[in-house]
Design a protein around this nucleic acid. Structure first.
Ligand code: ZN
Ligand code: ZN
Ligand code: ZN
Ligand code: ZN
Lengths: 160, 160
DNA sequence: TTTCGAAAGTTATAGAATAACGTCTCTCCA
DNA sequence: TGGAGAGACGTTATTCTATAACTTTCGAAA
């Protein structure tokens, strides 16, 4: 039972640097253009392990960065990041979080702490397989999965 | 491999009657008030096996039923139905669907056909258990699960 | 009959996402 | 060199989803 980095104090700037570097490398390899705006949005999404709303990103771009930005600016950047597997959308929160395993084709499972709002990305092939199998069992061919779990993370559990 | 009723031609009025009768019985038993409005909203949600948006419900109430209704009217009814386990919310669609197993405390898994938009509710304790176990594995206590799978249902698969 | 509380009506607003069109700046090739 | 075309981004407007806050209605209990 390893507590995930996300809900422990850690050198988060390292997370951010790694994520940005990985993104650069990945886009290079795939011929995708990681523009300054897209990189900045990715950085903002990675500013913490908490899913971030599109309008929060918009706020930072407008107020802190001083960039003239309207919703489509943010959503286009997010669409790019989603398509390239650099972020995930959390449907139950209408928010976005950086992907921990960029490059792999995958659909994570997310553990969302109702106390500290941290999202932990799991990658348990067994879960995906169990779901696909159950779907196949009724003749349904699964193409995409949304698995989001709300509860209490290890830290918040201890604190309580 | 049993194809679920939901994506076969069937006597759907039977689904509706059963759902409404079950709801009456359940509310009676639990001392919850299934008012005319709430019952009507439940009926509308059950009008098909496709998840229905709150504003679609609102449209019917206003135009067909001639009832003066604003969003809160619908959302309050839906909240009641959710709290009493009579409908589920599909986060990835912002829509609502009737519950197939009212009364049981459960969180379904949903298979959503991208072609005919039918939602099939599964109740596989094994999946829920696998997810909870994976969460416990990193010290996370799962309290609620959202499992939504998009793909092709048996009928649409055949048709293609 | 009065009183109280739940349900529903009403008005306004917040929050999330997209449509449609214009502008800018590259790269590519004549 | 100098367009042509494509992609990224800006801009404006609108749609869709959801909730806040206050008022009115109505039925059951005291
Ligand atoms: Zn991921
Ligand atoms: Zn926490
Ligand atoms: Zn039916
Ligand atoms: Zn289908």
């Amino acid at each position: 039972m390893k507590t995930p980095l996300a809900c422990l104090p850690h050198d988060h700037s390292h997370c951010v640097h790694t994520a940005l570097a990985d993104a650069e490398a990945l886009c290079e390899r795939q011929g995708a253009r990681l523009t300054a705006l897209r990189k900045r949005v990715l950085e903002l999404v990675w500013q913490s392990h908490k899913p971030l709303g599109a309008y929060d990103i918009l706020g930072v771009l407008s107020e802190t960065d001083g960039r003239r930005a309207a919703p489509p600016t943010v959503y286009r950047a997010l669409d790019f990041l989603l398509e390239n597997g650099l972020v995930h959308r959390i449907a139950s929160l209408n928010a976005f979080v950086g992907c921990n395993h960029p490059g792999d084709v995958h659909q994570g499972q997310f553990l969302i702490c109702r106390s500290c709002h941290t999202a932990i990305e799991l990658q348990q092939p067994a879960i995906g397989a169990a779901i696909s199998a159950a779907a196949e069992g009724v003749g349904f061919s699964a193409e995409g999965q949304t698995v989001e779990v709300v509860g209490l993370c290890a830290s918040c559990r201890e604190a309580a």
